[in-house]
């Protein structure tokens, strides 16, 4: 919901690689500005014991923000304020106004954002700003943006903001050509990376070169079934498989590749939770079983579990309740809502 992590250190870095930081009040170029202190009132709650430098930079910022001063020194000041607190959206907003008014070369701005992102990448403002800059630069920014997000994702492969930014770049500036292989690369490194699966779905459903779900289904199902066979305990691949048939329930129910992979995993008798839950969904959507499925499910029923129940869907729920106790309430509810004739 909002930035939440507070570092334990009390140290504040003030700009980068600086020697001795000169206070603004001692800088001649600021001598004509009267700083505006924060109006917290006489007895504020959640008062922050700002460092002197922080309070001073923000007081000068308030002064130029209130007078709407569009100057190079104002731009420099916003950078200082952002260094102290990259979460101040008002400062970022004013910085964008300055970048526009001063017609600044936005390539330099990308470097600035990247330095900020390396220090504190889980911050809405940085990414919103980055998107704004890239949008201004247009298609020529594309490769740079794709590389930039790749760098962030090489450190944290599930970085939510980085993925959102990358998706925006693809949609607004293009660069879809290599995206599917990038997803495969990430999944090869970590098949449990759900963000990479999500990106894969994004690509197959939205890339202008692949023709959408229906056109890619065959090859994607093949890929996913292999992934499931390799690691049947991986929820990501099972959800992806289901997603490939979004809006095409009948194809999903009737595609033997889906039911067969369930059966194979069930027969292996290990890591079969998702196979079983998929089978339940299939049954609820009208899948007609045969003896093989009934045998596979019965083989999973421990002796203490059940007397014979002719209904395979009920048996599936019973096994799920037993092997997945954290979701016992859920399976119990599913059991109570089974279609009559399944």
């Amino acid at each position: 919901m909002s930035e939440r992590k507070v570092s334990s250190e009390d140290s504040m870095s003030s700009g980068e690689g600086e020697e001795e930081r000169v206070p603004l009040r001692e800088r001649p170029e600021w001598s004509d500005v009267t700083p505006v202190p924060q109006d917290d009132g006489p007895d504020p709650v959640v008062p922050i014991k700002y460092t002197e430098e922080f309070a001073e930079v923000m007081s000068y910022f308030r002064a130029i923000y209130l007078s709407d001063e569009r100057s190079p020194r104002a731009l420099t000041l916003t950078a200082e304020a952002i260094h102290f607190n990259a979460g101040n959206y008002t400062v970022w907003h004013f910085r964008r106004l300055l970048l526009e008014s001063l017609k600044v070369d936005l390539h330099n701005e990308l470097d600035f954002v990247e330095r900020m992102a390396t220090a504190n990448s889980k911050n809405y403002q940085i990414w919103h700003h980055r998107r704004w800059v890239a949008e201004k630069l247009g298609p020529k920014a594309r490769n740079n943006e794709l590389d930039f997000t790749k760098r962030i994702l090489s450190i944290d492969a599930k970085h939510y903001h980085a993925w959102s930014h990358r998706q925006w770049v693809l949609q607004a500036l293009g660069g879809w050509e290599d995206e599917l292989s990038y997803c495969s690369e990430l999944l090869e490194a970590d098949i449990f990376n759900n963000s990479a699966w999500n990106q894969r779905y994004f690509v197959v459903t939205r890339s202008p070169f692949l023709g959408g779900l229906e056109a890619t289904r065959e090859s994607e199902v093949l890929y996913t079934v292999q992934a499931i066979m390799a690691r049947p305990e991986n929820e990501s691949s099972w959800r992806y498989l289901r997603g490939l048939y979004k809006g095409a329930t009948a194809s999903w129910v009737n595609d033997p590749q889906v039911s067969e992979v369930c059966l194979k995993i069930l027969n292996s008798k290990s890591n079969y939770l998702f196979a079983l839950s998929t089978l339940l969904d299939l049954l609820c959507s009208g899948f007609q079983t045969n003896q093989e499925f009934r045998d596979a499910v019965e083989a999973l029923m421990t002796s203490d579990l059940d007397k014979e129940d002719p209904d395979i869907a009920r048996n599936v729920c019973s096994v799920l309740q037993h092997v997945d106790p954290i979701r016992a309430n859920y399976w119990n509810w599913r059991k109570s809502r089974l279609p009559q004739t399944a």
Binding site: S2, S7, D10, P47, K49, G87, N120
Partner: peptide, 18 residues
């Protein structure tokens, strides 16, 4: 915390109602 927050909270200076 309602009456005193150390300077490390400066990074939440734009989240005080939060």
């Amino acid at each position: 915390s309602l009456s005193h927050l150390p300077s490390s909270f400066s990074i939440l200076d734009a989240n005080r109602p939060w």
